[in-house]
């Protein structure tokens, strides 16, 4: 049904959000910018987002992916709330988590349905590739 437009065609939209109260936004901003330079339309929400704000943003933007960054150690509480709200709202948007995440917590996050978890030192290339795969862009 959709007309295929080229330069003016909508591109997959991605939400990058700082979930929770911590202010360490360096990584989130670097990743948002790298994804923009890889051709995505990236909505950066800024800091201090609640799980429901992030989901609401993704809904209003009709986003194809949510990336959250948490460096305060509160990832278990915040991400489980995020996943719960996504389910409640009946939307199907993959979630990436980045931050200081101990290995055993990473497994628990994946079990909650998170698509992938990245820690410090992950090459940007790797993140761009997984995002492309998840939103189905070539």
């Amino acid at each position: 049904m959709a007309v295929q437009l080229i330069m003016h065609m909508p591109r997959p939209k991605i939400i990058i959000a700082k979930l929770g109260l911590d202010g360490h936004d360096r990584g989130a901003k670097v990743i948002a910018r790298a994804l923009a330079e890889a051709g995505f339309e990236v909505v950066y929400t800024g800091i201090r987002q609640t799980p429901s704000q992030v989901v609401e943003t993704a809904i209003q933007e009709d986003a194809k992916l949510i990336g959250v960054s948490i460096l305060s150690g509160s990832h278990m509480e915040l991400v489980s709330e995020l996943m719960k709200i996504i389910k409640e709202r009946g939307v199907d948007i993959p979630v990436l988590v980045g931050g200081i995440i101990p290995p055993e917590d990473r497994d628990a996050l994946l079990k909650m349905g998170v698509a992938a978890v990245y820690g410090p030192g992950t090459p940007l290339r790797e993140i761009i590739d997984i995002v492309k795969k998840l939103v189905g862009a070539s």
Partner: peptide, 22 residues
């Protein structure tokens, strides 16, 4: 912790996940 730094008591909704974390 972040709630103390942001002037939120630990029983505040936003504070709860962060109490005693950083």
């Amino acid at each position: 912790d972040l709630p103390t730094q942001l002037g939120l008591d630990p029983d505040h909704e936003l504070a709860y996940p962060e109490v005693g974390k950083v």
